[in-house]
Amino acid sequence: MTKRQIWWLLIIPCVLVAAAMIASLLGVFQFSFRRFIPGSLSAGGFTLDNFYGMARPIYLLVILDTLLISFLTAVFCLILSYPVAYALVRTTKEWLRTLLVILAITPLFTGEIVRTYAWMLVLGTQGFINSALLSIGLIDTPLQFMYTRFGVVVALVHFSMPVMIILLATAIGHVNRDCEKAAANLGAPPLSVFWRVTVPLTMPGIIAGTVVIFAWTMSAFATPQLIGGGKVLMISNLVYLQGLSSFNFPLAAMLSLIAFIAAIGSLGAIQPIVARLERRVALQ
């Protein structure tokens, strides 16, 4: 078999997967411009009603909420994951590395629902935090963590951290230690070496991790559904609530389309910032 034939053999599955993906997106696209017939599963003729309906305040608020929650999740995830990833790569103690790998990666194998339920037990009115604070007398009445953006972000950060840690650890692992040693030899204190050498050199990992977690969180469903308790809605929850569970498939398709555009649009909007950061790193 020639090299060209092998190349074609490998490209065919990619083309098929891409074709299936594009076909389903086109299906969603055409369905979003169909008329909803109450009391029927079948959609009617083409209409722009679903599109105009998106101007309702509820949809705009949910889209803004989704962007805000995704942004906060990505930022806090980065802040909390970086030290863990750094310690994971740089520690010389084998037992500590093993412990960090177990602590950081095992949550990946427990699934979203299990982890979200665990957070419900921690954040609930009678949960771990409130019980502890009540028992030591710091508060008189339980604090409200559940059904708030705060609770949703906390659970989403925990859910996303393993992925961020993996991406950051890869980036930190690729840093040329000679650069850090050179900076130290020239008199830079450890903190300065970290901020002015290590962090810029790991910028590709930071950018990749932040973008991945932001985009990933945009489609979060189970965590905001359970922790948000219907009071904090993200786009996926709205698709389910307004579209699927009330049999209004054209509206669900339009909401999905808007979610897709919002995700692509926001990633496109941060692209110039990403490009600038990458240029700066390359220059350094």
């Binding site: 309702r56 305040p57 509820i58 608020l61 009071k231 307004q242 009330s246 049999f247 209004n248 509206l251």
Partner: peptide, 18 residues
């Protein structure tokens, strides 16, 4: 119920959940 549920849901989400 089957015909009005979508209308109820839109109103309920807009006015009651937030």
């Amino acid at each position: 119920r089957a015909k009005l549920l979508p209308e109820w849901k839109v109103w309920f989400t807009e006015h009651m959940t937030r």
